[in-house]
Structures are given as structure tokens and as C-alpha cells.
Amino acid sequence: MNAVPQADARLGVGDRPGLLGVLMLSPALLYIVLLVAVPFFIAIALSMASATVGAPGVHGFVGFQNYVAAVHEPEFLMGLRNSVIVTVATVVLILIFATIESELLARDFRGKWLFQILIILPWAMPVSLAAVNWLWLLDSQFSPIDWLFRHLGLLGPGTIWGPQMHLYYYGQEWLGLASITLINVWRILPLATVIVLAGRVSIPADILEQAQVDGAGIFRTLFQISIPAMFPILVVATMFAALLVFGDMAIVAITTRGGPGYATQLLPFWAYEKGIEGGALSQGAAIALFMFPVLLAGAIWALRAAYRSQTR
């Protein structure tokens, strides 16, 4: 054995950290620039132009005219109101249910595997199948929920919700918004539960046991120990849920389509209807971009709060 430097060792790209870094980062960078940044700036440019579906392209600079025009339409204001209502309601419900589910999943019990599968199922379900399910569940004629209410004596002639035989979930303002909220909760709860569970299991077991020995019951432990400890992760879950709900147009497009009239209109679907179906591409872009500064500010605030609570 000669203890000398191995001068004939083959040196490759792996020995050059600078080059290796560029090579490994470039796919991600290209993806973000081409598929996120460029479309985003095109959208900003579009929103300040007078483009239509018939004549797409950034020409005819009109400044903030599209924004001003969008704000003056009643559909926009209704969509804004509904988007905020649906987002807030969904996030609140999701935080409650995700906390309950993560408390359950953090414990050991018989049949936990089945519970885990059921919780994750909405996430794994194909969108088309989910759409069929929800259309049928809340159908105006064939809803099994209506059928259940009728048999419970809540719906039909001579009952508290009667005399009608159906609730027409997608055909009424508040029931429609409630339905959209419900489907959003169903859709995002698995993701939120996984996020919150990660925070829950990272709480050291001895802190929870110490609380038990110190005399705290289940609710005191939950509200004074677990939830404060999970605060940063709850902020993350809130942000994910809020952004997913606020930006989603699939659920409203499948269910109420914004109706009756525009009573259940949501901003993303209104942007789509106005910009693509209505042909006013620039106005659609303006509507879609409207909430961007607000969402960005909200996200920055939330992340800073989460960060600060951890480095206190």
C-alpha cells in the first residue's frame, strides 16, 4: 500500500460543486420561469391591454381600465363576497376537523388502518368520480340526502322544511354556497389532516404526559398545550387550504355554475366566464389578478407569524 495521493483518480462533474449545482438546479429553474413566472407576467400585461379571445395578444395599453370596469360589475362584487365566505367557512371547518382527525390518528386503536384509508380516500379519488358522486348526492331530484330527510320527517308536506319535496342544493343562494363549502372541505381535508398530523406527532410525548400528570384534562391539553405547539403548522395548513379554495373554479363549475343568476358566483369562475367564455380576455385576467396582492400579503403575514412563534 502506497500512502500517496491518488493522482490518477478520475475526476468528474461530481467533483466540481459549482457546475454540479447549476446542472441540478436548472430543470427546476427552467420550469418555474417558463411555466410560472412568464405566464404570470403575461397575465399582468394582458390585464392592462384590450385583448379579446378573438384578438389575443398584448396590444392597446389601457392601464387599470379593466380593473375599474371589473369592480363596477355586480357579478364581480358578488363573486368577491362569495369567494371570501366560502374560503373562510372552508378553512374554519377544515381546521376544526383536521385537528380532531390528527388527535385521533396520533393515538393507537384497533382498526386504525381502516380509519387512515377512509381519511385519505377523498384525496385519492379521481376528480371525475368525485364530481359524479357529488352531483348525485346533491341532485335536485334524486338526492339521497333529501330522501333521508323525507324519511326523517323533515322534508315534504307538513314538515318544518316542507311542503317542498326537494331542497335544490345547487339552486339556492345559501344552500349552494354551503354545498360548495362542503365539497371543498371534503376535498382538502385529507391534505390538511396530513399537514396538521405532522405537527401533532412532532409534539414530544413527555410534554403531553406531563400535562396529564399536572392534572390537565383532554380539552385543557388540546387548547393550552397541543394547539399552541402546533400553531406554526396550523398557519401552514390554513394557507394551503385558503389558497386551494380561493383559486378553485372546478367545484363551482361542476355544481351551481354560479347560479341561480350569479348568487353563488365565485371570483375564479367569474374570471373564466368573463375572460374565456365571454371573450373579454383582458378583463378576465384583471379579475383573476385582483386578489393576488391581498393573498400575497396574507401569506407573508401568516408565514412571518409562524416563523416568529418558533424563534421566540
Binding site: 410534554i207 406531563q210 400535562a211 396529564q212 390537565a216 399552541p228 405547539a229
Partner: peptide, 20 residues
Amino acid sequence: PPRARNVSMVFQSYALYPNM
């Protein structure tokens, strides 16, 4: 349950509540 026993316990890690 532990809370009905009036036993004071000190854990190896001290298990102080970090948010208080």
C-alpha cells in the same frame, strides 16, 4: 387517570411547556 392521583412527576427532559 394521572390527573386524579396527585402525583408530581419530573421527566428526564423536564418537559417544560415551550409556549408558556
